[in-house]
């Protein structure tokens, strides 16, 4: 359903609040489809927030966004779809190592998509986010501390 809505109603993502309503709807559906999915996403949020200089915010198109030094690491939509930004070379390398796919919209970019369903998927999601986190350069000479 997520793909169908994104494909057919994509322009509506610019309507204020609407993507967040859709994301809330996805979370409600997720409750029935994957009972523990929302707990896994909460666990990921807690873990990523424990890393230095990270924060979470609302993703502009719905979902929870992870940031480091106010730059986006990735985000998770209400249906458990994780999107993380890498370079295209890193993406090709990760696609050999992990069951990740091209981004659900920007297929020719460095973005990867990974669907979280199980507790093992949660671990993979954390590894992907940690990998992206470790790659992000520090904005100041003082480093991450």
């Amino acid at each position: 359903m997520f793909d169908w809505v994104v494909k057919n109603f994509g322009p509506l993502k610019h309507v204020p609040v609407l993507p967040h309503v859709f994301d809330a709807f996805l979370k409600m559906i997720s409750l029935f489809q994957h009972k523990h999915l929302l707990d896994y996403v909460d666990d990921i949020e807690t873990e990523v927030c424990s890393w230095q200089n990270t924060s979470v915010s609302v993703h502009k198109y719905g979902g929870i966004q992870f940031n480091t030094y106010n730059r986006e690491l990735g985000h998770i939509h209400g249906n458990g779809l994780l999107d993380v930004l890498f370079s295209r070379e890193q993406k090709l390398m990760l696609m050999k190592q992990y069951p990740v796919q091209d981004h659900h919209v920007f297929k020719n970019s460095g973005w990867i998509s990974f669907k979280i369903k199980t507790i093992e998927d949660k671990q993979i999601a954390l590894e992907l986010l940690k990998y992206a986190y470790d790659l992000k350069p520090c904005p100041s000479p003082h480093g991450r501390g």
Binding site: K27, M28, V56, V58
Partner: peptide
């Protein structure tokens, strides 16, 4: 749907 949206958005904003 809108109460959940409001609650989840606000949770994030309050935490900021």
């Amino acid at each position: 749907c809108f109460i959940i949206t409001g609650a989840l958005l606000a949770r994030m904003l309050y935490n900021r």
